[in-house]
Amino acid sequence: MSALAATEAGSRGHFWRVFLIGGLISYRALFYWINPWQYVPTMLAAPLFQILFFVYLGRAAGVGSTAFFVVGNSIQICSMSGIYGMTMAISNERQFQTLSPILATPSNRLAVFLGRGLPVLITGFQTTCFGFLVSALILGFRPAPAELPMLLLTVLVTAGSCTGFGMALGSVGLRVRDVFLISNIAYFAVLLVCGVEVPLSQLPGAVRGLAQFLPLTHGIAAGRLLAAGRGGGAAVSDILLELLVGCCWAAFAYLLFRHFERSGRRTGAFDRL
């Protein structure tokens, strides 16, 4: 064994270092929109236009309130990071062919995998906060100050669940070429299905059922309750559901990754990415 390895690759110290430091390094390596030239247009400008577009569309058509669209869209834009960012942060390993060297290390796989999520989650959180902030400044969105802490919590949980969902896409991308096609569909599907622009009650039953298992649905519901000043107590169950959905997706994503690692060892699928 190497004399240099002070911490056992199985130890807790190793886990947290790979999770935090490793996660940040790989995020910088794989998340394309990190430099300001891409970050500003994709993570700030485009989402902002999305909010404005739907709020004004709603006003022009006389449907929904400003708060309905502001909350729905501001929360949904965190999936820009969660869905696209997470797909990149995992499946771009393919393009750089760095998966083999990583899998040849004794590192803790859970830490390697989940570590990529934290910076993506934070990026998504920022995007949504930015959305709310601008909405407050130019659209007159005024949530009750007392609800703000819970609203921030909702945003955090939802950014997390989108990240978990994106992890699953990332894992799929290790196997499937052109996973970004799926990510594109996913981004617009959640826009339609998860009650962002259309109240769930107006969607067909089957779609409404599906929405229960997707990220955003419960988070947006919680956000709307909070924005309407209905109190934190009313939103708790939705926040917990959103958390549950996110954890399930993340767990599924990790299992999928491990499955691909194992089957890759068996079939040699990772040699030819």
Partner: peptide, 12 residues
């Protein structure tokens, strides 16, 4: 650095 973390090298 990334691989140093993965190989659990002594941080110091």
């Amino acid at each position: 650095r990334y691989f140093a973390e993965l190989y659990a090298l002594d941080p110091r």
